[in-house]
Write a protein that binds this DNA or RNA. Structure first.
Lengths: 115, 115
DNA sequence: GCGATATATTCGTTGACACGAATATTCGTA
DNA sequence: TACGAATATTCGTGTCAACGAATATATCGC
């Protein structure tokens, strides 16, 4: 039960990301997704196939249509994985680091501008 | 400051994922990464370029070498984005859903086995 | 069973990208 | 300044995946 990059790769595709974002609000049929996102039907089916393959979604038959919904497990998994990075974003000097970084970036662009 | 799929796509590449996982433990030089992950030098540099382009890492010059480290901002961002999915994995019947799903999967494989 | 609707799958094309080799650049040191 | 070490970049190649069109499959109402 380790984090695998496949899930992230699946989410990395812009249209799949949009589909997942849409499914966050609740289950949707293929045609519903197609209409809301302005995609072709085959596109939606293909992306859903990928999402299902990595376990991000599941399908429930409803007459001729299938209701797709997000699965909890991979989301939990993602959260658990990300949790190991708490030390990164919650470190004591987190805010300070960002401030320093901002200034550093500004200096850099200033220097570039002066040339 | 919205979540973008580019970050996820960057993490979706297996070797980049490994690099990020390694950098979680602290800053590393290119050669250090190369040695630990068994990659070519150009491979490491190229992946680090991508990771830097999406803002996941930053480089600090140390003589001829550069120390790469994770940046807090995108990790925070990812966490913030994932947080909007709490309703998915924290829903009341989360555990129950998974149990049902397990049984459903078992039934399916049983049925397949019987053929 | 038949037609209509909803979805899945196949297939060819095209663009992107990971890789490896080679070369270029940067920086410390003698 | 010349050299070596560390890293970046360029370039050609091969692979893979997203797309669109077409076709196949499933399921309902009649």
């Amino acid at each position: 039960m380790d984090m695998n990059p496949e899930t992230l790769a699946a989410l990395g595709e812009p249209n799949r990301f949009r589909i997942v974002e849409l499914l966050r609000t609740g289950p949707r049929s293929v045609n519903d997704i197609r209409g809301r996102l302005g995609l072709r039907q085959s596109q939606v089916s293909q992306h859903l196939t990928v999402l299902k393959a990595v376990g991000l979604v599941e399908a429930e038959p409803r007459a001729q249509q299938r209701l797709y919904r997000l699965r909890a497990q991979p989301v939990k998994q993602l959260h658990k994985w990300l949790d190991r990075y708490r030390c990164i974003w919650e470190e004591r000097f987190g805010q300070l680091d960002e401030l320093v970084e901002e200034i550093r970036q500004k200096d850099k662009s200033d220097a570039a501008g002066k040339k």
